[in-house]
Amino acid sequence: EGYCPTLKWQQQQVANFSAVRQSLAKHRNHWRSQHLDSNVSMPKSEDEEGWKKFCLGERVYSELDAVSDNENLGVDYIKVGFPPLLSIVSRMNQATVTSVLEYLINWFGEKKFTPELGRWLYALLACLEKPLLPEAHSLIRQLARRCSEVRVLEENKNEERLSALNLIICLVSRYFDQRDLADEP
């Protein structure tokens, strides 16, 4: 009790997500043609470790504590991970989207949920085309189940992590029609 989102909130998230996907489709060609910054080097599709480092950053990947780096005032994306920018995700084909989703779900199966992970999972779900391939179908169900397992262990219902887990469960179950996994308040 207190952890489960209201039906109204869930319906709103599905509507917003649907609008986000439409805008993504509309702007994809524009962003795909933009030059990437020179420091952005996207790993090859099959490079699981490379993608985990790229998305989550070397700090999270290597499980180092966040240390403030006073000498470097700019953001070092190699350390903190690249965010799912449109100029990056628009270049990913469906096979790559599915592979990276699989790599991050593998990661989440063993490690903590972080904001970086949440942003990438959301972005990859936004890029995932319907109808789902059987492989993607199984992956997103695995993702929602893992979110539920982690949510059960949450001690603080005001945690940002709780709302992120609720969001992912909601999108998988209600946007991608996996209703048996939906929260029924």
Partner: peptide, 27 residues
Amino acid sequence: QSDASDVWDDTALVKAYDKAVASFKNA
């Protein structure tokens, strides 16, 4: 709102996610 070109800058997906997460806390 998501159609507005200023919203659809390079970080649009990050903003959409952060807004969705914040909306639960504020609900």
